[in-house]
């Protein structure tokens, strides 16, 4: 049984639907991980202790355990306490929170690295600490870590394949289903890999544009 790519076109619309789901999950989780990452960074640094301490435990949970397990926990585990999320939503939340923790680490470091004269200048003008963080310190910190956050987002795209295990019909699961019908694993996995690569290129293009925009405003 040699290779036969002629089976692929018949499943192309099916695979493309998977591509769309992968893009949707990646964009959803990326946005979530970005904004929640900023929020996490601020509460990790400035929150009161009774928020900071549980947050540390939460952070440990997300960094120290497999993402696959986290997805299972959110999708299958939460049902037991009455939270029954659609697979797509569970996938976005799982991926989003997981990468939010990594983004938060980057942003925390960057916030600490912002010159303390910035906070002073803002406070001197009469801004509160919260206002100064929001308008002066955090925007600079985030701007400084856009490239490494971009790398996290590429990793997020690749890890989005894991949500196939909770039944989201994204690219990997679509390929698997096509294989189930055709018994052509090599062909469909290669096609899936090619699509991941293309999405990856697209993301890098977007990231470069964002970085250039930021560079221009310096």
């Amino acid at each position: 049984m040699g290779l036969d790519f002629t089976v692929v076109p018949g499943y192309l619309d099916f695979i493309l639907l998977g591509v769309l789901w992968t893009i949707a999950i990646t964009i959803g989780a990326a946005l979530l991980s970005f904004f929640i990452g900023i929020f996490f960074a601020v509460i990790a640094l400035y929150g009161p202790w009774f928020i900071r301490l549980p947050f540390r435990a939460f952070e440990w949970l997300f960094m120290g355990t497999p993402l696959l397990l986290q997805l299972f926990l959110i999708y299958f585990g939460l049902v037991q306490i009455g939270i029954d999320l659609p697979a797509f939503v569970a996938g976005v939340i799982g991926l989003g929170l997981h990468f939010a923790v990594y983004n938060s680490e980057l942003i925390q470091t960057a916030i600490i690295a912002v010159d303390r004269g910035q906070m002073e200048a803002a406070r001197t003008l009469g801004l509160s600490r919260g206002q100064a963080l929001r308008k002066v310190v955090v925007p600079q910190a985030v701007r400084d870590v856009i490239p490494p956050i971009g790398n996290n987002m590429i990793a997020l795209l690749k890890d989005s394949a894991l949500v196939s295990v909770i039944g989201v019909s994204e690219l990997t699961l679509s390929a698997q289903r096509a294989i189930g019908n055709t018994y052509r694993p090599f062909e469909f996995y290669v096609v899936a890999a090619a699509f991941y690569y293309l999405i990856n290129l697209g993301m890098e293009w977007v990231l470069r544009r964002i970085e250039r925009r930021i560079q221009a405003a310096r």
Binding site: G117, Q118, E120, A121, T124, V136, P139, A217
Partner: peptide, 13 residues
């Protein structure tokens, strides 16, 4: 109370 610093501390962003 306006304050002016030695190192300006303008907001670079």
């Amino acid at each position: 109370i306006g304050m002016v610093f030695q190192h300006f501390n303008l907001f670079p962003h």
